[in-house]
Amino acid sequence: MAVGVPLEGIGFRLRPVVAADASFVLDLRNNPQNAKFLPPLPGTVEDQRNWIQRQHQLPGDYYFVVEDRRTGLAVGLTGLYAHAPDSDGGLIEWGRFVVANKSLAAPETSLLSHRYAFEVLNVREVFGYSIEQNEKVIGFHRSCGLEDRGLSSTTYKIGDQVHRSLCFALTRDQWPDFKAKLTRTARQIVQILGRKP
């Protein structure tokens, strides 16, 4: 069982997904503006609620709602899963990453997801996949400083189409620079979001 613990950031926080988030998860994941290149979630709110309850029982699987600390509103989702521990912390996959359009939550969501992996779970490497055509997310990962490992053998089916994916990763050695860069960005975003209209 791996429900996870909350993690406070600068402008945003991660908290474990609960069954009551089922409707938010479905709305966010199935909104094409937010999740154009994520496989849509089938089923009803009840199905999603049941899935979340099953997810709580999965070992090495952490699923979070991203909340804006200023407003308390949920603005995104992120997950760490398929943890393969070894004597040096092992590897974990980062995914289920989606934030509401215009929320400016993406940089700190990436920062907090990696912070959870490296500083809470003490893994030695985080990796993830992005669909090859998802230029927005691929550009974002590269700008943040994730290592682009090129085309992977992992494919995703969305509708009738099978998409190839690129693998991105961050190692424990790369984490301090990544953290410093995205912490500066997160502070800049908080300053912008705190401006008076």
Binding site: A105, P107, K136, F140, S143, T185, I192, R195
Partner: peptide, 29 residues
């Protein structure tokens, strides 16, 4: 490609500097 949340901040900061203005949060978003 390129216009993501990170580069959006760069864009905002360049606009503010070049025009000598400070945009409200809603306008940034």
């Amino acid at each position: 490609r390129g216009w993501d949340s990170l580069n959006h901040l760069t864009l905002v900061s360049e606009i503010e500097e070049e025009f000598g203005i400070m945009l409200d949060t809603d306008d940034v978003l």
